[in-house]
Nucleic acid binder design. Sequence first.
DNA 1: GTAACTGCAAAATATTTGCATCCTT
DNA 2: AAGGATGCAAATATTTTGCAGTTAC
Lengths: 137, 137
Amino acid sequence: MQSDQLIKKAGLSLTESRKLILDIFISSPAALSHHDIENLMPEGFDRVTVYRTLQTFVQKGIIHQVPTTDNTTLYALCKEECQSGHHHDNHVHFICTSCQTTNCLEEVTVPLVRLPKGFELKKAAMVIEGICDTCNN
Amino acid sequence: MQSDQLIKKAGLSLTESRKLILDIFISSPAALSHHDIENLMPEGFDRVTVYRTLQTFVQKGIIHQVPTTDNTTLYALCKEECQSGHHHDNHVHFICTSCQTTNCLEEVTVPLVRLPKGFELKKAAMVIEGICDTCNN
DNA sequence: GTAACTGCAAAATATTTGCATCCTT
DNA sequence: AAGGATGCAAATATTTTGCAGTTAC
């Protein structure tokens, strides 16, 4: 889907900044940090707008935060199912230790686990570290 | 194991700060952030030492970083197997959305997943959000 | 026209670095 | 005694907030 439609569908007003940032996500195969975005935006673009836009996108279910082992926050596009209210985050995030990118493996679903008595599961995410298919050639 | 022994076993010199910080981890059931530690340390304790100590502990395999969905970094004690060189991080991290604590479910191991062709797995972690047994009463 | 979004300035917070001093071994 | 660890000061980086001007609808 195009950025324009995605933004409108989320009930947000269509602005230049939002289009720019969303286009970056659409054209990036890997998860991105705030820092990455900032670097990909036009020279001199305001940092604060990036913060606010990412926050808005997360709230509206356009992007989601990817769990990481270190202290960085990564964001990635949500797939179709996400936008419609509830957030299906049940896929696997893959961190390549060779090229340092983080990707969502949409095709791999998080397996169910049996939790100890008394624990109630709401959402599960998985982070796998390893070598990605591109680096493995 | 006592903090003294753990520190020595890791080949680190035994200092007051390290003992204090490690004791906090030993007596805490949940994962802790840098901020948490700072609050639990004696009034006026130097922030920088906390940074450096946490870093050292991670390097030496005494504690490990817990993956989180937001941008916080949490640390938790490594169990026995961790200290002996290679790091077994293959357990499930449970975030309770009610009491906001993060615990390691040592007894639950991360299930194996089948990755797409070309991907090579090194390490897998899992983050589950839900309600913990304490809150579920 | 109005509400929402942006940019700038600045505050607040978090993290890193350098260096002199102190402590562990 | 020697090397590493700490504390302090300060530099750097990150994130948040307020407000005035601008833009989308």
